[in-house]
Computed example of a mutant assay.
Amino acid sequence: MTSETLIRASVLGNLHSLLASYGLAPEKVALLSGMTPADPGDETALISQRSYMDLLHLCALETGDPLFALKLGLRMVAGDLGVLGLLAANKPTLRTAIESLNEHFRSYQQGADIAVEPVGDGLVRLTYRVGERLTGGLEADIDLTLGAALAFFRRFFGARWRPREVHVVYGPVAHRKSLERVLDAPVWFLQDANGFTFEERLLDESQPGAEPQRATALEAYLRQIHAASALEADFVSSLRIFIVSNLAIANVSAAAAAADCGMSLRSMQRRLGSRRLTYERLVDETRRDIAERLLATSPLSIAEIAYHCGYGDPANFHRAFLRWAGETPAAYRRARLATN
């Protein structure tokens, strides 16, 4: 069972700063795309992945730059990818980072595959395949992903790092020279997978700034979610698992939850009502459970915990936690550390 992927509008900050660099007003593009000017700063505003791709297409038209999506991807940082990005950023080597991404990304997006394949002469190729891709916005989707992957590699090896060659599944484009100039590598079109080639020895180089203890905590957290998903069959438990799995990307609307359960919104509300529950209460209780567990057992900062609980603004998380526990997140953490 799947539901349409939703994206928190507040993550479009990089998009708006890039638009501003072209001399365009972000508010204008927001209105043209069907968003209100306030949406980009509103953690409760959601747009579908389809709308996001349409927005990228509109940005390319407004800026006159067919490489807009690629440049947006190049601006991404690990935190933009949520729990998975933070996990990868704290793995000791590139090899272990890619292995973790592949293991957990498959659980979040069915049919997706990230792999490292040998190509000979001491080279390997990072590939990214998805069984079902968007039919519209395909090129923008690929360019955004490639840009994000290159940004991640440059976190390891420096801003001047470049791949040997880049592969894409789409056909030749009129702006090929510009594409190769931005990627700083030759591009091969109509390939069987998207990705790029690099030296195999780089896989085992140490990642600067990695915190293995943090990676261990994040990985244990993700595995706990996946294990629970496999074992829990109860309706309410399934809803809780859906909420936990999607809080960090803000895909926790009641409509999305109902679709994931294969039922109408009204049917879900009726079943919850028979147990004297509401979906809003489940979301609130799940957020509190995650917050208390991470504050007591993980090395994550309070801002990071707020994000994993679905709060883009730590101040909103602070107010919610005061309501739940009668004390601030920092005070709660200090008390648990003192007890332990």
Score class of each variant (00 low, 15 high):
Glu4Gln: 14
Thr5Val: 14
Thr5Asp: 02
Leu6Lys: 06
Ile7Lys: 05
Leu12Thr: 11
Asn14Glu: 08
Ser17Gln: 07
Ser17Ala: 14
Leu19His: 07
Ala20Trp: 10
Ser21Gly: 04
Ser21Asp: 12
Ser21Trp: 11
Ser21Thr: 09
Gly23Asp: 02
Gly23Ser: 07
Gly23Phe: 11
Ala25Phe: 05
Pro26Arg: 10
Lys28Asn: 05
Leu31Phe: 02
Met35Gln: 11
Thr36Asp: 07
Ala38Arg: 13
Glu43His: 12
Thr44Ala: 12
Thr44Val: 08
Thr44Gly: 01
Gln49Pro: 04
Arg50Phe: 08
Ser51Gln: 15
Leu55Met: 15
Leu58Gln: 01
Leu58Lys: 09
Leu58Thr: 01
Ala60Asn: 01
Leu61Ser: 06
Leu61Phe: 02
Glu62Trp: 01
Leu67Cys: 07
Leu67Met: 08
Phe68Tyr: 06
Phe68Met: 06
Lys71Arg: 15
Leu72Thr: 05
Gly73Tyr: 06
Leu74Lys: 06
Val77Asn: 03
Val77Thr: 12
Ala78Met: 11
Asp80Trp: 12
Val83Thr: 15
Gly85Trp: 05
Leu86Cys: 02
Leu86Pro: 00
Leu87His: 03
Pro92Asn: 10
Ile98Tyr: 12
Glu103Pro: 12
Gln110Trp: 04
Gln110Glu: 14
Ala112His: 09
Ala115Phe: 06
Val116Tyr: 10
Val116Cys: 07
Val116Gly: 07
Gly122Lys: 08
Leu123Arg: 13
Leu123Ala: 09
Val124Met: 04
Tyr128Ile: 04
Val130Phe: 08
Gly131Phe: 01
Arg133Phe: 09
